[in-house]
Design a protein around this nucleic acid. Sequence first.
DNA 1: GTTGTGACGACTT
DNA 2: AAAGTCGCCACAA
Length: 116
Amino acid sequence: MKRLPPEALDRIYAAIRAVPRGRVATYGWIAERAGLPRRARLVGHALRHAPRRLRLPWHRIINAQGRISFPRGSEPYAEQRRRLEAEGVHFLRGRVRLDQYGWRLTLDELLWKPRE
DNA sequence: GTTGTGACGACTT
DNA sequence: AAAGTCGCCACAA
């Protein structure tokens, strides 16, 4: 009954590190890229316990509704929003447009569809 | 064991 | 739009 490969956490952190400045990704997308489909909650968990030393761009991870997952008005919420806006990510009615700032490329897409 | 909670998400009412 | 429901599963109690 096991699950959770030992490298899972590292893959999650790597996926988070891959999100560029000024872009955002959802917990679900990160999970997918880490090879852990449907494990969005695990990403949240990993982030919550991530050592600050890793210097992860944690603020670039938001939920699938384009909103920050901390309670509105809380300090963490304010800081995440502040950091995102500082990178040029614009909020509209408390939400970020994923079709505009979302970053969801996979390695396969980069290798197979570099055209256009 | 069981239960509840959670930086989540897709679907259905 | 908003609220439920269900899936997911690590963790703490």
